[in-house]
Design a protein around this nucleic acid. Sequence first.
DNA 1: TTGAAAGCGCTACCAA
DNA 2: TTGGTAGCGCTTTCAA
Lengths: 351, 351
Amino acid sequence: MAHLRNPPRVVGDAPSGPPRMSDVARLAGVSKMTVSRVLAGHSVALATRERVQQAIDELGYVADAAAGALSSGRSEFVAVLVPSLASSNFSDTVRGLSARLEPHGLQLLLGDTDYDLAREERLVRSMLRYQPRCIALTGSQHTDGTRRLLERSRIPVVEMWDMPARPIDMAVGFSNVRAAREMVRYLKDRGYRKIGFLGGASDLDRRGLERLKGYQQEIRAQGLGEPRVIRLGQSPITMSHGAPALDALLAQWPDTDAVMCVSDMSAFGAIMQCHRRGIRVPHDMAVAGFGNFELAACCQPPITTVSVDAYGIGSRTGELLLAATMAADLPLKPEHRKVAIDHAVVARESA
Amino acid sequence: MAHLRNPPRVVGDAPSGPPRMSDVARLAGVSKMTVSRVLAGHSVALATRERVQQAIDELGYVADAAAGALSSGRSEFVAVLVPSLASSNFSDTVRGLSARLEPHGLQLLLGDTDYDLAREERLVRSMLRYQPRCIALTGSQHTDGTRRLLERSRIPVVEMWDMPARPIDMAVGFSNVRAAREMVRYLKDRGYRKIGFLGGASDLDRRGLERLKGYQQEIRAQGLGEPRVIRLGQSPITMSHGAPALDALLAQWPDTDAVMCVSDMSAFGAIMQCHRRGIRVPHDMAVAGFGNFELAACCQPPITTVSVDAYGIGSRTGELLLAATMAADLPLKPEHRKVAIDHAVVARESA
DNA sequence: TTGAAAGCGCTACCAA
DNA sequence: TTGGTAGCGCTTTCAA
């Protein structure tokens, strides 16, 4: 009788904690195993099943998932890391992921890296403690520590929102460089020649940097002179970024006739600042965004932008993860490890 | 030797799965308990601690949280349900919660109810399986099933974003009715007399309904004639709601001189529609929002709105939950079970 | 179709 | 300061 953590229950005592599987079993007059089978949907005689279900309902029994995971050796967690939950972009991706994974009873473990790679590593380490079946990260830049943790964990990994040459494991995204180049070409086709770029000052927003790189490459390729780049403000780029960035651009290059922004947020801020300064959009100044947020469609003038299927990134990631966790033995062919997501310039009135 | 789930490891075999605490113990030449103590930060001789730490690093050992939770009888999960992760309002609340809870090693289990009470119940049931230490819900309306589940679970519960007369357990929020009434008074003080209201058509957005109720009460109390209410569109109310709602309002009551919107999103949509129709804001039509999103400050004209401390709701909720989980034995006094969050009309240019 | 026993990986408890 | 043992609540495995 030594070493008992909880005092033995005296017969007739009210059960102390929440009901356990053995309580259900006793009430239904069956063994624990039968209860377990009913819960798992395995074959059990109809009459037995009904008695067990009744006992479950009567006691309000909820099975302990931690115990189940420990015993069966597989958890139902999927770890997901995004730079920011507030961004509609990433929250759409999360919605796409849930939509795919929830029907399989998988539980998302969500984390918000705040565009901070060290924080990402801390979160990965902390989430790995729950033995997730797989993990989805944003971007393809990670600390060495993060990579090491992931490699050692040997679980399927998807990197989202980018298209790295050599992903850790799998990737679902698109080339931000190419998308930005397409926007420059679009602006050039519309007749703009003095095109500026408004981006963030932080090197942590890799996707923003890629867009900047694409802008610079295409400006050079098209012979549109020296790039006109303003880098201002921290990630994530917010609406309030647009106004001061536009002012800085016009202060340095007053003859600019179009501006391409790292996101719809800053494009919106820039357009509102144009309203304030009496600059007509697009007549005096064209403004283009990136992301095709709802904001871009509702703004006056509606914002020309690059639409990206954020929800699709989530749901395709979910599919890859499902395939990888369900059939872990069948390694995917390399060409199936990278999923390219569509993107396109959406022409509206602002540019 | 029967009933062994995994075949016994032959001496010299490479360990099959990830390293376990016993692997670390063996490598460091100590018992599992000592490893456990090092991880928990309990007192261990410095030299021993260092050897153990070295073994942990060498193996890349990550402790299994499910096993720990099962053994110790307490998990590190906190369940959190919000209507929508995409809304900056609720994602701010989540940030406030994380900021308070993460330092204590607590892991958020986030769920998105999509403004659907049945879905809320499903999520609560599913999260309860992980034996969370406590749970935070949004709003004070829940299904009977949800209430029953929560009562039976006997864990601390906080209802956020509302101020119910009788909370399930604890509440952190404010009265949406009172806040809306203050906005009507503000508009009246500014000289507006024909004030309309733009809200959603769904009865699921309780906070939106409360704001409508506050509007109606105060319009009557101030003798401002019959309420002018347009209810259009599903929850959550988005930017695209504003334009058609404004059109409907003006079609029915062309002489309206001010409009109060259920959220900054629809206020923004309404203002953009005013731009399109050549209606000057606030000269021809005042527009007020609710929530004080970044959008409201960046819009041209900047939007007069009700600011609510969304982040504060999260961090105060975190404090309550910490107090309740850490000192579960000390029941809070009833007057400490309800935390009122400040809100205030922010006067800007739009009204 | 059902049951009994063992054990998943960890921590509480007591002993040394 | 450290170690041994029992057991958390469940599922796997095999037997009936």
